[in-house]
Amino acid sequence: MKLAHTTANNWLPSLIDEMFKNDYLGGTTETTKSFLPAVNVAERDESYLLELSIPGFSKEEVQIEIDQDVLTITSQVEKTESDAALKFTRREFSKKSFKRSFNLPETVNQNVIDASYNNGVLMVILPKKEEALPQPKRTISLK
């Protein structure tokens, strides 16, 4: 009975994803073959940090592009001849193509974006423009 209840509520995560599809730095999603890598977005004083969980991918298989204030991360996975020749009795993981896009806020300095990939996590650092950085407290004297 509990299993039936769980499957009946599978619509909730997809409804939430749909609601936040174009959210500020929340990103849009386009999936191919139903793979959607998990993402974390955090804001620091000097930058935004975007982390994408894509274990099993190599750096060469991942593309990052910026076009008109939209950051897009994609990977196109092609089936190899060795994959086609195998007959799996059980297959619980595989690499699949994906595409994730994120609307960048005006405060991001797009000229100095940096990315690295380590232990299955793609990390993209989006530095803020100088004018968007927190300013120190100051006192204004009266005249």
Score class of each variant (00 low, 15 high):
121 V>M: 11
134 P>W: 01
60 E>F: 06
76 Q>G: 10
105 P>S: 02
27 G>C: 04
108 V>K: 00
57 F>C: 02
127 P>W: 04
64 I>L: 13
40 N>R: 12
111 N>L: 04
25 L>H: 01
122 L>N: 01
120 G>S: 08
8 A>G: 10
30 E>D: 11
117 Y>A: 13
14 S>N: 15
55 P>W: 12
41 V>N: 08
43 E>P: 03
103 N>I: 08
30 E>H: 07
38 A>Q: 14
83 D>A: 13
50 L>I: 11
28 T>Q: 09
116 S>Q: 12
71 L>M: 10
32 T>C: 05
45 D>A: 14
120 G>W: 06
58 S>C: 03
30 E>S: 05
66 I>N: 00
68 Q>T: 12
9 N>Y: 12
140 I>W: 05
4 A>F: 12
82 S>T: 10
95 K>C: 08
103 N>A: 09
63 Q>K: 11
128 K>D: 05
137 K>W: 06
103 N>R: 03
60 E>D: 15
7 T>Q: 11
105 P>V: 02
141 S>D: 10
64 I>P: 01
34 S>T: 05
87 K>F: 09
134 P>F: 04
87 K>Y: 09
46 E>V: 06
104 L>I: 01
62 V>T: 07
7 T>M: 08
19 M>A: 14
52 L>D: 00
132 A>I: 02
12 L>Q: 13
64 I>E: 10
53 S>G: 08
61 E>A: 14
83 D>G: 02
36 L>Y: 08
134 P>K: 09
1 M>Q: 07
92 E>H: 05
136 P>I: 09
124 V>C: 06
79 K>D: 14
24 Y>M: 08
83 D>W: 05
53 S>H: 12
140 I>D: 05
16 I>V: 15
31 T>I: 04
84 A>C: 01
56 G>Q: 08
5 H>F: 07
57 F>S: 04
56 G>A: 11
96 K>M: 06
40 N>P: 04
84 A>V: 10
99 K>L: 10
122 L>F: 11
69 D>Y: 00
45 D>T: 03
98 F>C: 02
59 K>M: 08
32 T>E: 14
51 E>K: 14
29 T>Y: 06
120 G>Y: 12
6 T>G: 00
40 N>K: 13
126 L>C: 03
90 R>Y: 13
85 A>C: 01
74 T>N: 10
100 R>E: 00
105 P>M: 00
53 S>A: 11
4 A>K: 07
124 V>L: 06
139 T>G: 06
40 N>H: 06
24 Y>I: 10
76 Q>S: 15
121 V>C: 07
99 K>D: 04
103 N>P: 03
131 E>Q: 15
103 N>D: 13
42 A>I: 07
76 Q>P: 11
18 E>N: 08
88 F>P: 03
50 L>G: 00
112 V>A: 07
59 K>A: 14
136 P>N: 12
45 D>N: 10
98 F>W: 03
71 L>I: 10
10 N>E: 15
